[in-house]
Design a protein around this nucleic acid. Structure first.
Lengths: 105, 105
DNA sequence: TCAATATGTAACAATTTAGTTACGCAAATA
DNA sequence: TATTTGCGTAACTAAATTGTTACATATTGA
């Protein structure tokens, strides 16, 4: 069952886990230690994130180092990207800049 | 209960509704006609989208015209934006362009 | 080898989700 | 006015979600 990415990020705890694992690898227990929730609950959240590719796991001895792989957020980004004209000014500026500077395409 | 946006877009039917209402206003019944699902089910999806601000409703006689307000996708966009370095090349180009052209800040 | 550690998973319960049909009501229309 | 239309909502059900505790297992270390 390849989990749906939109479904995976619907849970706030899972978003926190992604944030936590974006810049660093951590064993499952260390992740769980950061939450006011049982370890098995976190273990299952990580499993869901892993099943949809948002978290990859490297096994090392008895530890399983997890880290986020935001590549799979692409689907979400692409969907929201259709509504980019509603983004904030910074992103509008980005687009304007590209328009004036588009020599790479 | 102000619905959570991430939760709201987790459902594929609701994402379809947003897509459908992004460029046009439609009465609830017309939206429902596009789905293989009962009208009350669609009505509730629209209610959820309305409660989190993703769909606004203009009442006109006995019809309720719905249209998408992607402004509220901002929260999703902002969260995924942290992982922009994993975006596709087009967006990478956007950033590069801003970097070379940043006189407005 | 034996105990501690790291982790997954089963079993269970509570809650939420998502759909259905039935019904109610206001607005439009014949 | 009587009927049709557009739509919300209640009542119900089935399934999924999310948490818990208890237990199993593999790895590490004393």
């Amino acid at each position: 069952m390849p989990q749906d990415v939109f479904q995976a990020i619907a849970d706030p705890t899972r978003r926190e886990i992604i944030d936590m694992l974006a810049g660093q690898s951590m064993p499952v227990n260390d992740v769980a230690a950061n939450f006011d929730m049982s370890r098995p609950a976190i273990s299952r959240h990580i499993k869901i994130l892993n099943e949809c590719g948002l978290v990859v796991i490297r096994k090392e001895g008895r530890k399983r180092y997890c880290h986020a792989d935001p590549q799979k957020l692409q689907e979400v980004i692409e969907w929201t990207y259709r509504y980019r004209k509603f983004w904030n000014e910074k992103l509008d500026a980005l687009e304007a800049a590209l328009g004036e500077n588009d020599q790479s395409q």
